[in-house]
Simulated assay, not measured.
Amino acid sequence: MSILVVEDDPGIRDIVEVALRFHGFLVRSVTTCEDALAEVDRDPPALVVLDVMLPDGDGFEVCRRIRAAGRHTPVIFLTARDTTADTVRGLALGGDDYITKPFSVEALVARIRAVLRRATTPSVGEPDRTVLRVADLELDEGRWEVRRAGVAVDLSPTEFRLLACLMENRDRVLTKRQLLELVWGYGGPTQVVETYISYLRRKLDPLGPPLIHTQRGIGYTLRPPQVP
C-alpha cells in the first residue's frame, strides 16, 4: 500500500519513511500543502500521514479540501499541536486519527495498520450479516451503501462506521466513550463523537423522522420512530 507522508521536518520525515518502508509500505513524501493536494489528486494513496504546521499553510486545510473533493482517503495527523481543541478539530474535519509529537514509531505503524483495516473492511459486527435495517433506513455493509426512504445517502467512512455501530446496537444507549472505542478504536476527546453525530443527523433527518436520539449525560441511541 502507498503512504503519502506530508512533513517538512527532514529528521522526522526520514524516520517515518524508513519505518514505513521497513514494514512493507510504498512511501512518497512532500513538504507543502500544495504538493500534498497535488499528489492526492494525481495518484491517491492508501493513506496520508499529515503534519499540521507546514511552510505554506495548515494541514487542517489540506484535510478539509481532500474531504470537500469527495475523497475518503484515510488521514492521520502527526503534529506537535497537542491541545484537545486541535485534536477535535482534526478529527471533525475528517481525520481518522491524531498522533502528537514526540511519538513512538511502532505506535505510528500500528495505528496506520488499524486505520487501513477500518478503511478497507466495511463490515461492523457479525460477519455473516451484510444488510442492516431500522425503519426506512438501510445500510449495506458489503456494498458500502446507505439508503433512507429509498434515497441514497453519501457517507464518509467514519460516518458509515458510526451509523453501522448504532444500527447494530439499535435501541441500546451507547456512551460517547464506547463509541470512541468501537468506531475510532481508541480513547480521546468525546467532542468528536458529538460532531459526527451531528453530521449523520444533517444527512438523515431531512429524509424522515429523527432516528438518532441523545440520552442526556450518557450518549446516543438509534431507534425507529414510535408509531402513534
Rank of each mutant, 00 (worst) to 15 (best):
T84M: 15
L108Q: 02
A19N: 11
V109Q: 13
R113G: 03
V27K: 03
D96P: 03
P74D: 07
G24K: 07
F77W: 06
V105I: 15
R111T: 01
F60S: 02
A36R: 09
R117N: 07
I76S: 05
A19H: 10
S123N: 10
A46N: 12
A19W: 12
L91C: 06
V115M: 07
A69C: 02
T31F: 00
L137N: 14
A36F: 03
F77G: 01
R111N: 01
P55L: 11
D56L: 04
T31D: 14
A69Q: 11
P74Q: 06
A19S: 13
P122E: 00
V62H: 05
L50G: 12
V40G: 04
C33Y: 07
T84I: 15
T120R: 13
T87N: 07
A135E: 14
G70A: 02
A19P: 00
L20E: 15
A135W: 14
H72I: 06
D86V: 05
R133T: 14
H23V: 00
Y98H: 01
A114G: 08
A19T: 08
T121K: 10
A36E: 07
C63D: 02
K101F: 01
G57Y: 06
L26Y: 09
V115S: 06
T130M: 11
A119N: 12
V27W: 09
E34R: 12
A80R: 03
V62R: 08
L137T: 11
R71G: 03
I76L: 11
R118M: 10
F25Q: 12
V16K: 01
G90D: 04
R133V: 14
I99N: 01
C63Q: 04
C33H: 09
H23T: 10
T32Q: 12
D41Y: 07
S104G: 02
D82C: 01
R13K: 10
E61W: 10
A46V: 05
A114L: 08
R129G: 00
G125T: 08
V27P: 07
L47P: 04
T100G: 01
L93Q: 09
F103E: 04
P10S: 09
S104R: 03
T121M: 10
V131M: 08
T31V: 15
E39S: 11
S29H: 09
A80H: 05
G70E: 03
V52I: 14
A68F: 07
M53P: 02
F103N: 03
P122T: 00
A46L: 07
C33D: 04
L137I: 13
E61I: 15
R113N: 08
D35G: 00
L93I: 08
E106S: 13
S123M: 09
L93N: 09
P55C: 09
D136Q: 15
A46G: 11
V134S: 12
D43M: 10
P127N: 05
T130F: 09
D96Y: 03
A119I: 08
S123W: 00
D56C: 04
P10E: 14
G125V: 10
T87K: 14
V124W: 10
L137C: 13
T73A: 10
L54Q: 07
T83Y: 03
M53Q: 09
L47E: 04
P55D: 05
L132M: 01
C63Y: 05
I15Y: 02
P44M: 05
R21F: 03
T120I: 04
D128H: 14
L37S: 06
P10D: 14
L116T: 06
C63G: 01
V52P: 05
